[in-house]
Amino acid sequence: MTSQTPLPARDLALIAVFAGITAALGLIPPIYLPISPAPITAQSLGPMLAGAILGGRRGGASLVLFMAMVALGLPLLSGGRGGIGVFLSPTVGFLVGFVVCAFAIGWATYRVGAPYSIWKGLVITLLGGLVLMYIFGLTGMMIVAHLSLSQALLAQVMYLPGDLTKAVIAVLVAKGVHTAYPGLLPWHGQVAAAGSETGSLDDSPVDSAPAGDQVR
């Protein structure tokens, strides 16, 4: 019940800024590597980083916001795509996967807690950012384009080397950010969870309310 408290202003700002990060990653021109037949775009780093840095609720929300901005007609998806049409295209499953993946990576990362471990981070990012992403992406292709699983895999397999590379990069970047900007990840164990994702100070003014009446 209490999980649905409105997000405080700082969390809203973090959500909005990370929606901007995912958009900015889409502006980076795709790179061509010999290990991958398909161009590698930086955009899918967005959900991995949003999750690993902001946690499940805020990371997932920032990707929901990003997708809402795309739906409203901002050309933010890599290649300058946007509008409602992208949600009707065969790759819609990956767009849903972006949101789920940010949430899953964030939830698991914050559950493991501080300090951020590269190896645990890599397992989480591969499971959340690759396995989960492909489950959603391939399911979307199978439904929208009436493809069989093997046909959908055939269309997608050339992106695999790039996606593996991105999972590694995302973990290294997340490690760097958590080192340079500590205090985001909750500590489990020694210190009791004082305020993991959101500090709640909402209860205190209730007691002082009658005092306010007396002044008047």
Binding site: P8, A9, R10, D11, L12, A13, L14, A16, V17, F18, G20, I21, A24, A42, L45, L49, I53, I169, L172, V173, G176, V177, A180, Y181, L184
Partner: peptide
Amino acid sequence: FRAFAVPLLVRALRDADAIGDALV
């Protein structure tokens, strides 16, 4: 890419703090 992304994200986090303070 890492030498680009880490400072970008840290500055973005600081900006978000400033935006949050402004909203409060």
